[in-house]
Design a protein around this nucleic acid. Structure first.
Length: 275
DNA sequence: CACGAGACCTGTTCGC
DNA sequence: TGCGAACAGGTCTCGT
């Protein structure tokens, strides 16, 4: 389900709460229920469970597409992958299908990790570097300059689409926001990264920031049966708009497969050229 | 290093 | 209506 804007939205919701439930910062984990052991990446499920009991949630953060619960000792890191979701529920409610891990927060509330496809993973670690070691720069970090981005692109002979999806190259982009950013930039998804001019690179980074910020402003995108309340899907220019007219030039949007991912672009606004 | 295929999973939608 | 294929917001690993 989530890319950077969706994870950011979830982090914000856990901090601030909603009409239905409070924020969870300050609450203490009283019990941990593991319904699917495969969801735990590190440490072993028994240590994971035992290590969470009695921990207070101090703050909530995000890095790339990972959610971070900073605890009184250590960090609970969560990656939702394709179908994961985090839900704050009443502690005594019946347990819905696909719940994988449940953390009881005091007597009244619980935080549930629901994940139909079981791709999601959690880590309980003392040092964040264990997980974030090879993650690339945060695109919204202002210290990440256009010049630096251009230099990184210039070193790569790869196609833009798979490169932007590579979390070691740049953090947080997924299939939606990559297609949208390339469209805004007028760049073909198969264009070689090293062929971009400094101006094209600067435009691309600006547009990456633009679509990510728009996504956050709209509380993420909600598609398929995974609904979170965001409405950025209504503003897609190309993603899953195969055959529909480009909003800029009316040319039908095309879909190709790149690196086994559906890739959407406008053949007129994003002509293929090398350099 | 770059790329493609396969794996991990379940659910929904599409095409005949 | 039924049924298999295709597809899905992600990432890892292996072979070439």
């Amino acid at each position: 389900m989530p890319e950077l804007p969706e994870v950011e939205t979830i982090a914000n919701g856990l901090r601030s709460g909603s009409d239905d439930h409070p924020g969870i910062v300050g609450l203490t984990i009283t019990r941990a229920q593991v319904l699917w052991r495969g969801t735990i990446a590190q440490p072993d499920p028994e240590s994971f469970q035992a290590g969470l009991i009695g921990q207070q949630i101090i703050s909530i953060g995000r890095r790339a597409k990972y959610l971070i619960l900073n605890l009184s000792a250590g960090h609970l890191i969560i990656h939702l992958r394709m179908s994961g979701d985090l839900l704050v529920e009443h502690a005594q409610d019946p347990i819905p299908k696909h719940h994988r891990i449940i953390l009881y927060l005091g007597e009244v509330w619980r935080l549930a990790f629901n994940d139909a496809r079981k791709f999601g993973r959690t880590w309980l670690v003392d040092n964040l570097q264990v997980v974030f070691d090879k993650i690339g720069p945060e695109p919204l970090d202002e210290s990440f300059s256009h010049e630096h981005f251009f230099e990184r692109l210039a070193q790569k002979q790869r196609q833009l689409k798979p490169l932007l999806l590579d979390q070691g190259f740049i953090a947080g982009l997924g299939n939606i926001y990559t297609d949208e950013a390339l469209h805004l930039s007028g760049l073909h998804p198969l264009r070689k990264a090293s062929s971009l001019s400094p101006e094209e690179a600067a435009q691309l980074l600006s547009n990456i920031r633009l679509v990510l910020q728009a996504g956050i402003r709209h509380h993420g995108a909600s598609i398929d049966w995974v609904y979170r309340g965001g409405d950025f899907q209504n503003f897609f220019q190309v993603y899953r708009r195969t055959g529909q007219p480009c909003r800029q030039c009316a040319t039908p949007i095309q879909r190709i497969v790149v690196g086994q991912r559906g890739t959407h672009f406008c053949p007129r606004c994003q002509p293929f050229k090398e350099g």
